[in-house]
Simulated scan of single mutants.
Amino acid sequence: MMNLQQLTSPIRVGVLGFGGLGQAAARILAPKQEMIWVAAADKKGYAYDPRGLNPDTCITAYQAQGSLGYIEAGGTLSNQSITDLISQADVNGYFLALPNLPNTFMASVVQEIIKSGWRGVLVDALKRTSAVEQMLQLKDSLQAAGITYMAGCGATPGLLTAAAALAAQSYAEIHSVKITFGVGIANWEAYRATIREDIAHIPGYNVEKAVAMSDAEVEALLDRTNGILALENMEHADDIMLELAGICPRDRVTVGGVVDTRNPKKPLSTNVQITGRTFEGKISTHTFTLGDETSMAANVCGPAFGYLKAGIALNQRGIYGLFTAAEIMPQFVK
Score class of each variant (00 low, 15 high):
Gly318Thr: 09
Tyr48Arg: 04
Ser295Ala: 10
Thr285Ser: 03
Leu308Thr: 02
Ala30Glu: 15
Thr225Lys: 09
Thr194Gly: 02
Arg252His: 14
Thr8Glu: 05
Glu280Lys: 10
Gln63Trp: 03
Pro203Phe: 12
Val211Ile: 15
Arg317Thr: 09
Leu314Asn: 03
Thr285Arg: 00
Thr194Cys: 08
Thr285Leu: 00
Ile59Arg: 04
Ala297Trp: 01
His286Tyr: 08
Met329Tyr: 13
Glu34Asn: 12
Ala212Gly: 13
Ala325Glu: 03
Asn263Cys: 14
Ala131Asp: 11
Gly17Ala: 12
Gly22Ser: 06
Leu222Thr: 07
Leu242Val: 12
Asp239Pro: 00
Ala212Ile: 11
Ala97Gln: 05
Lys209Ile: 15
Met2Glu: 08
Gln5Ile: 09
Cys58Lys: 04
Ala216Tyr: 12
Val258Gly: 01
Gly93Pro: 01
Met150Glu: 03
Phe332Ser: 06
Leu142Ala: 07
Leu322Pro: 02
Ala165Lys: 07
Thr161His: 08
Ala200Ile: 07
Ile147Cys: 06
Ala39Phe: 06
Met329Phe: 15
Lys209His: 14
Asp215Ser: 15
Val38Arg: 04
Thr156Met: 12
Ala61Leu: 04
Tyr62Thr: 03
Pro267Gln: 08
Val110Ser: 03
Ile185Cys: 11
Ile274Thr: 01
Thr287Ile: 13
Thr270Arg: 01
Lys115Gly: 03
Cys301Pro: 02
Gly302Val: 05
Gly146Leu: 10
Ser116Lys: 07
Pro10Lys: 07
Ile71Leu: 15
Ile82Lys: 05
Ala155Trp: 00
Ala325Trp: 03
Gly227Ile: 02
Arg192Gly: 11
Ala144Trp: 02
Leu314Tyr: 04
Val121Thr: 13
Leu122Lys: 12
Ala172His: 12
Val255Ser: 10
Pro10Glu: 04
Gln88Arg: 14
Ala162Asp: 03
Leu138Trp: 07
Val183Gly: 02
Gly93Gln: 03
Ala298Met: 13
Tyr307Gln: 03
His286Ala: 12
